[in-house]
């Protein structure tokens, strides 16, 4: 789409009420007017892209630096790649990412097992701290779970 050029300074009254002191972003932002130069500023050299980086489609090129932690992979990676075809405004961006995060948890467990490591979920959840500082919670959870399991068991037994 061609951008229409308007001689805005010829519009009657253009800029006559502009008040440089009306600056609600002060002192957080030291307004320089450079915003009007958009993304035309001096950039540092680009970090080489050595792993797959999913880039927001709201920017023309990757940022100068970026993290290389955990590149997308597996089923969650496929979903993340789909998410990044949509802008940050769309549910189609964020909801698939949340779905991918949940799938990624299972992928993590499978990956652990594949490497011969059975994840100790209790330890990973810091169970020791709950045992030390809030033992009552654990005891009540065990009791509630036992009652539920026993009730289900007896109901199923009666049906047979």
């Amino acid at each position: 789409m061609k951008k229409e050029v308007i001689d805005y300074k010829a519009i009657p009254g253009w800029g006559m009420d502009a008040d440089p002191d009306n600056e609600p972003t002060y002192p957080i932002k030291n307004y320089t007017g450079d915003d009007h130069n958009r993304i035309n500023y001096e950039r540092s050299p680009q970090q080489p892209v050595t792993v797959e980086i999913l880039q927001s489609n709201e920017r023309p090129k990757p940022s100068v630096v970026f993290g290389t932690s955990v590149p997308p992979s597996g089923l969650s990676g496929i979903i993340r790649r789909y998410a990044f075809t949509h802008s940050e405004d769309r549910y189609r961006h964020w909801l698939p990412l949340i779905l991918a995060d949940r799938i990624n948890v299972f992928e993590g467990i499978i990956d652990d097992v594949r490497k011969g490591h059975i994840p100790n979920i209790f330890a990973e959840k810091g169970f020791k701290a709950t045992w030390k500082y809030n033992r009552q919670k654990i005891v009540s959870q065990v009791l509630v779970t036992s009652v539920v399991v026993l009730t289900l068991f007896s109901v199923l037994k009666k049906k047979k």
Binding site: K29, T32, D34, Y41, S63, V65
Partner: peptide, 21 residues
């Protein structure tokens, strides 16, 4: 170096995150 950093908005740098604007 970006316009946001130069105006003191170091929490809004445009050259440190390719994944979200």
């Amino acid at each position: 170096k970006c316009n946001f950093c130069k105006q003191g908005l170091y929490g809004n740098c445009h050259e440190s995150n390719p994944m979200a604007t």
